[in-house]
Design a protein around this nucleic acid. Sequence first.
DNA 1: TGAATTGTTATCGT
DNA 2: AACGATAACAATTC
Length: 296
Amino acid sequence: MPELPEVETIVRTYRHRLVERRIVHFASTWPRNTRPSAALVRRRIVGRRIERLWRRAKYIVFDLDDGSHLLVHLRMSGRMEWATVDAAGTARRFDPPGPKGQEPPRHARAWWDLDDGHRLWFCDARKFGRIVHTRDFVAATAGLGAEPLDDAFTPEALQALLLARRRRLKPLLLDQAVVAGLGNIYVDEALHGAGLHPLMPSDRLRDGEIDRLHAAIRDVLRRAIAANGTSFDWIYPDGRMQEHLAVYGRAGEPCRRCGARIEMLRVGQRGTHVCPRCQRVPSRTRTRRRGDRTYT
DNA sequence: TGAATTGTTATCGT
DNA sequence: AACGATAACAATTC
């Protein structure tokens, strides 16, 4: 389940392999996930040079030399694989090489051939991933919220986002239109780091709590990137952050901070992990009506 | 067999 | 009316 740190790790792995390369072929065996269409994307990107590879939210972004952009979203189970193509046109994988190294990776859905004889595979078991080509990057990403590791993401910026609505912290932080890049793992970790309960209404945080949440979000993302992300299953290997998680996947185990048992509850249809002692449940007493909000 | 997972969209309620 | 919560959905693995 790639979130911001996992996508960032993939971008860092592939950047030196892809930048300056020219795309010589593209094909998709699952056209539904390719926009505007596999044929159109092929026509538009073949012959283009990749100028930059970077990340926006959970999107892998290819800047192409004609000013257009290719966006890849891994969603639930998307992943990349890397291979060489020999003179006979046989692709040989070497990320995890198969028994013969030749067969397409499991759940291969699309591939790009590059001018230096390499092939980039896009694999996706659940087929939720998306490959989008756009000539208007700004419009294509207009719905995305704040980038949490950007300089512009200050405690004041977070405060404005929290106070502008009254939503429970967990669904709010999961909402890509508000803060972009967080998923289930890192929202739970950030809330625990800040000592805040997932059900806390966003407009009830005091300044100190907002500062703590801001620091906790950035801290957990930075530490996760440094650990190459979190690896729970075959979808995303090589990360080490799972060894350092405070609450996610630790229901029933003792809190590393206070020793209380980590609990799992359900918030907005998502499994949610909390320490009942470090993250106290908000009382429902102070229900303010619309128009009663205080801004600073 | 059902639970789990992401993010979008449609729908219901306040 | 606008916003927030909720449900459905795409598809597969364990």
